[in-house]
Design a protein around this nucleic acid. Structure first.
Length: 551
DNA sequence: GCCGTTTTCGGCCCGACTGTTTTCAGTCG
């Protein structure tokens, strides 16, 4: 709204940055405020004025400045501003000159040929306005990262078939491994950029070409996904990859750091006056500005300039959450174990559902005892992999578990998970899970917030209290690696790390092919700044089993 | 509106593409 009123661009930038900081902040500001208002002062990008407004919102539910803007700016103007190619200036122009305050009025004005009469507008602009309105509803919202990854990999392998392309990679939020992605950014290099652009525009699944220049083009795929291609020379590839990976806020911060050193960063390299420091790789960029290499997953401008050694997939020693055909899995225990062995794992825990989950053919005490015997036999038969016994036991409504302690204590790995009653109050849900955590045989809390990306919200739960309890009882919290879950989120993983809570990466595999979901878990763990020491299944199984002493 | 190993005032990341323009504004990432 400030953009429409034409307020200072710097003020507007401050609001944007502050909003992003708050949105990505792992804690509820209210919790911090209630604990100790002074802690709020440490939040970067939020100064005296914005803090005053935040406190006003916490106290009263809104702030005067916002209420005043809402009164002043008609809501339809905000809808107009969401249209592609239309920003605050054009929105204001339409409103001031033609009293347009809704998308419907804009459409009718464009159809009557009124838009082309405005200064700075023409026939082309007018038809662009209509096109934007047309495409607005059809354009896909953000899609889950794993879907975008599939699309990007397909485009990359297509691009590699062209002789003109010497190097190609995806960048943007996909490379930073956000849970959901709004578009796909592709970076390519080669000596004949026109040829690369032409080849790209022949990619079979393109619906239309949005813009096409000498070094950059934007297309929309048939599924509604936007794909941007940028072409640079070989010498600039590292600088360009760094630049197009973002995030924007991260880039601004590192550019400021460079500025203080008398340097300038852009997508062509790092510059000292007119002298160019060539950056063929991202490492060259970091070296030029004297920073340690920061992995893409951490480039969110949340303080990522200190060196840490992030987790890598090779650090993972085994699977801690998997299902067999004893419950709702597709494969036998043997097949699961053989695949885990091929993956290079030392162990795999079979953690089938418990009986109350009837739809999954969950195991009761008797069947679980039979499974324990079966695994004992298999461990003698199969070499090179240790199968751990286990269960993903249901947390019942009152926080008690769906299997008796007498059987839980015989298991290597007990995961406790919520599969029912998602709509309890925050207090009830929190107390329920904390009660499960306090069971002496529970080792891991599975998919702790229950969210399904783009499908189901997390249930209402106080994760700070849950993690405090987990810390106290030496229970690990799961990062569920199923790409539709990715539960916990990166912000909460960072919170867990700060609180000293152990994280367990579990694929929740319901078939051998899903064991590879560990890669998505690694993406998220890296976004959460996790290191080897923060993750349960980087240890050997003997250490994992002794990591919680049965009481 | 934020921020400070030049600074509490005066800066604030940087460039491509488009359309409407005789040199640039608006939008986007």
């Amino acid at each position: 709204m400030l953009e429409i009123t034409g307020d200072s661009v710097f003020k507007i930038r401050s609001y944007h940055r502050a909003a992003q900081v708050v949105a990505n902040y792992p804690y509820h500001l209210r919790d911090i405020y209630e604990k100790d208002p002074k802690l709020l002062d440490k939040i970067p990008g939020i100064g005296k004025s914005l803090m005053g407004k935040i406190i006003e919102i916490l106290d009263t539910g809104d702030c005067k400045k916002h209420l005043q803007l809402v009164k002043q700016i008609k809501p339809g103007l905000l809808d107009i501003m969401k249209l592609r190619g239309i920003g605050p200036k054009k929105t204001k122009l339409f409103h001031d000159e033609l009293s347009i305050d809704s998308v419907a009025k804009l459409k009718s004005a464009a159809k009557r040929g009124l838009i082309r009469e405005l200064s700075g507008m023409g026939e082309k602009s007018e038809s662009e306005v209509l096109k934007s309105i047309e495409s607005y509803g059809r354009l896909k919202a953000r899609i889950p990262m794993y879907e975008a990854l599939d699309i990007a990999e397909e485009i990359i392998s297509y691009m590699k078939k062209s002789d003109a392309v010497s190097k190609v990679e995806y960048a943007g939020s996909l490379r930073r491994r956000l849970e959901t992605v709004g578009d796909v950014d592709i970076l390519a290099c080669g000596d004949k950029p026109e040829e690369i652009i032409k080849y790209f525009c022949d990619f079979p699944f393109i619906s239309h070409i949005e813009s096409r220049g000498n070094t950059k083009t934007t297309v929309i795929l048939e599924n509604g996904m936007q794909v941007d291609l940028r072409v640079v020379s070989k010498d600039d590839f590292g600088a360009a990859l760094y630049y197009f990976t973002g995030s924007k806020a991260h880039n601004i911060t590192t550019r400021k750091i460079a500025q203080k050193m008398g340097l300038k960063i852009n997508e062509y390299g790092v510059f000292k006056g007119n002298k160019k420091i060539i950056c063929r790789t991202e490492e060259d960029v970091f070296k030029a500005i004297n920073l340690p290499y920061i992995i893409p997953e951490m480039r969110e401008d949340t303080g990522e300039t200190d060196f840490i050694k992030p987790i890598e997939i090779s650090d993972i020693k085994g699977e801690l959450h998997s299902h067999s055909d004893w419950s709702d899995g597709e494969n036998t225990i043997t097949e699961m174990a053989e695949t885990a062995k091929k993956t290079g794992y030392e162990f795999i825990a079979i953690t089938d559902h418990s009986a109350s989950l009837k739809i999954a053919h969950g195991l009761d005490k008797t069947r679980l005892e039979a499974q324990i015997k079966e695994i004992e036999t298999l461990n003698k038969k199969i070499e090179g992999i240790k199968i751990l016994t286990g269960a993903e036991v249901d947390i019942l409504r009152d926080g008690s578990l769906d299997l008796p302690d007498s059987i839980l204590k015989k298991l290597d790995i007990v995961i406790a998970s919520v599969h029912t009653y998602f709509r309890l109050t925050r207090e009830e849900q929190t107390a329920r899970i904390i009660k499960a955590i306090s069971n002496p045989f529970v080792k891991i809390i599975g998919h702790p917030t229950g969210k399904l990306i783009g499908m189901r919200e997390a249930y209402d739960i106080d994760l700070v209290k849950v993690m405090e309890a987990a810390k106290k009882h030496n229970v690990a919290i799961e990062l569920n690696c199923n790409p539709k879950r990715l539960d916990l989120s990166a912000e909460h993983l960072r919170m867990a790390k700060d609180m000293g809570v152990m994280i367990s990466l579990g694929t929740d595999s319901h078939g051998t092919s899903q064991l590879s979901y560990i890669k998505y878990g690694i993406f998220m763990a890296r976004r959460g700044w996790l290191e080897k020491k923060n993750i349960l299944n980087t240890m050997d199984y003997a250490s994992i089993l002794s990591s919680k002493h049965h009481e």
